[in-house]
Structure formats: C-alpha cells, structure tokens
Computed example of a mutant assay.
Amino acid sequence: MNVPIDVKRLLPIWEHFRAATDIAPIRDEAHYARMTEMLEALLDETQGDEAHPAMGLVDIVGDLIEDYEAEHHPLPEATGVQALKFLMEQHGLKQSDLTEIGSQGVVSEILTGKRELNIRQVRALSERFGVSAASFV
C-alpha cells in the first residue's frame, strides 16, 4: 500500500528538524564536531539496541561523519600486520593469546614479517575482532 508523499506537509517538519539538529552534509570542522557530539549522544541513548527508534538517525549521522572523514581525515593505508598489532594493543593481547592463528612462534613470525597470514588465519582474526577480513590482507 503506497501512500503518496505529501511534500508540502513534510517540508515544514524537515525544516524544523534540520534547524534543531543541523543534520546536513558536514561543511567544516565545527559542524563535524557537532555531528560527532550528536552521534555520541545518540549512541548513549540507544545503548546498542538495534530496535531503538533512533537507530535510523544513528546510521544517517554516522554516514555523514564517515563521508566527511573520508574526504578531510583520510586514514593512512595500514598493512595486515599493522592492523593486527593495533588490535592486539587495543585488546591487551599477547602473542600467546592468539591461539586461533597458531603458536606463539607462528604469531611472532607473522608480526615480524617472516610469515604471511593465510586465509584461515585471516578469517579467524576477522571473527575474533569483528572486523572485515580485508583489514588483514
């Protein structure tokens, strides 16, 4: 059942919402800071509940921030080993904690560049850290 879109009714609501939130493509660093603050407040409100009514707004604000960051704050390309080292540091892990990719010796060889990660190890790391397998390739 398609309900026709009543643009004349929606525009005043949109203008009120936009004025209250400043939601729009991010223009500058000050606007970026406001959108980041809004995203943090929305995430606090939703508490990770995917069914929360504000999750759609979380997605929109997150996309606006992501677009701005991609253009104005690009991340340097990282190697798979650099990504692994970063994630180990963030999670307080030692080489011996990564048993899903091999012994401590195997992990050491990977981290020093003497050995490449294989596809099984990449998949295991992707699952463990909840990141794209591309992070380790």
Results as ranks from 00 to 15, higher is better:
residue 3 V to R: 12
residue 3 V to G: 15
residue 3 V to T: 12
residue 10 L to G: 01
residue 10 L to A: 04
residue 14 W to G: 00
residue 15 E to Q: 01
residue 18 R to I: 04
residue 19 A to N: 08
residue 19 A to V: 04
residue 19 A to W: 08
residue 19 A to L: 07
residue 21 T to H: 05
residue 23 I to F: 07
residue 31 H to E: 02
residue 33 A to F: 06
residue 33 A to D: 12
residue 36 T to W: 09
residue 38 M to L: 07
residue 41 A to N: 09
residue 42 L to C: 10
residue 42 L to A: 06
residue 42 L to Y: 08
residue 45 E to F: 06
residue 48 G to V: 00
residue 48 G to E: 02
residue 48 G to M: 00
residue 52 H to N: 13
residue 53 P to L: 06
residue 53 P to S: 10
residue 54 A to M: 10
residue 55 M to E: 08
residue 56 G to W: 05
residue 58 V to Q: 15
residue 59 D to M: 14
residue 60 I to H: 02
residue 65 I to H: 12
residue 67 D to K: 03
residue 70 A to L: 13
residue 71 E to T: 14
residue 71 E to L: 13
residue 73 H to P: 12
residue 74 P to Q: 08
residue 75 L to E: 08
residue 76 P to F: 10
residue 77 E to L: 10
residue 82 Q to G: 14
residue 84 L to D: 08
residue 86 F to R: 03
residue 87 L to S: 08
residue 87 L to Y: 00
residue 89 E to M: 15
residue 89 E to T: 13
residue 90 Q to P: 00
residue 90 Q to G: 07
residue 94 K to N: 13
residue 97 D to F: 11
residue 99 T to Y: 10
residue 99 T to R: 14
residue 100 E to A: 11
residue 100 E to Q: 02
residue 101 I to F: 09
residue 103 S to F: 11
residue 107 V to E: 11
residue 108 S to N: 14
residue 113 G to S: 07
residue 114 K to Q: 09
residue 115 R to G: 11
residue 115 R to L: 13
residue 115 R to I: 15
residue 115 R to S: 11
residue 117 L to D: 06
residue 118 N to H: 07
residue 122 V to I: 10
residue 125 L to G: 05
residue 128 R to E: 03
residue 129 F to G: 14
residue 129 F to D: 07
residue 129 F to E: 04
residue 130 G to D: 00
residue 132 S to E: 13
residue 133 A to V: 01
residue 133 A to R: 05
residue 135 S to K: 11
residue 137 V to F: 13
residue 137 V to L: 12
